[in-house]
Design a protein around this nucleic acid. Sequence first.
DNA 1: ACGAGATTTAGACTAAGTCTAAATCAAACT
DNA 2: AGTTTGATTTAGACTTAGTCTAAATCTCGT
Lengths: 139, 139
Amino acid sequence: MESHRPLTKQRELVYQTVLCGKDHPTAADILERLHAQGHRISYATVYNSLRYLTENGLLKELKVGESVSRYDARTEPHHHIVCRSCGRVDEVFTPIPEAFVLQVGEDTQYHIEEMDLVIHGLCSACKERNRTMKASLNS
Amino acid sequence: MESHRPLTKQRELVYQTVLCGKDHPTAADILERLHAQGHRISYATVYNSLRYLTENGLLKELKVGESVSRYDARTEPHHHIVCRSCGRVDEVFTPIPEAFVLQVGEDTQYHIEEMDLVIHGLCSACKERNRTMKASLNS
DNA sequence: ACGAGATTTAGACTAAGTCTAAATCAAACT
DNA sequence: AGTTTGATTTAGACTTAGTCTAAATCTCGT
């Protein structure tokens, strides 16, 4: 009769870790942070909890081209942008134009359900660092 | 003095396999197909060749949310769409509107270099299959 | 034909994640 | 309050995808 327990202690811990870490932690990050805080939680439980939380819409799994999964507590539809220099991952809330989505549906004859967009580039800090480095080379 | 050899026999084999297979084969697919054709080539060489070919712009590496890399011989900029029911992967040549890209650059203050878009949905065959299945349930 | 450097090979190794079976827990009965 | 029952957690074995290493092989220029 599907009587899952709601948020167990461990699931709560994993959820809070993703929520508080303002980055997009991997399973290994989460395990490490919890252990550092003195919590006793196993490898498998972190994975199980992440799956549970993702399936229940509390978290979103996120792949930005590496082989690991990252997790995001922002569940509203949005995209991600990765700095190719420092690796930071930021949220992008600029919505994809509806007209583009319709056009893709027409061009492919697919029923479109989800657009998964990962943008790559240079963040403003790394842009700046590049600029000043170049300037000092020219002097 | 950087005198790499051009397309060796093995690299050529790997390249042809991606080119001919109209799907988007994984390294394991490629190895299997070459062995099936009676070629003697090792595991590592397939990976080395794929890296070489990708770095030299003959192939593009492609991740569609699974943990494996797939390879694509179409190197013009384009996107991919994955059927969540049968798993087929198709090319999408509809271009992302320039205005959207500019807007993202402004919103994020990143210098944007690449847009990596993977779309998920139902292909026309699976849509159709669903439709007829539903119809027969209603009868 | 020879030497130098690049490429290929087999197999050990790594990283990320899943699976399994036993142990533990927490809510519901009695 | 003690027991039962099903869900959850745990440790560790296992799987999958891919990298690394050192030895063997190949190819080109002489």
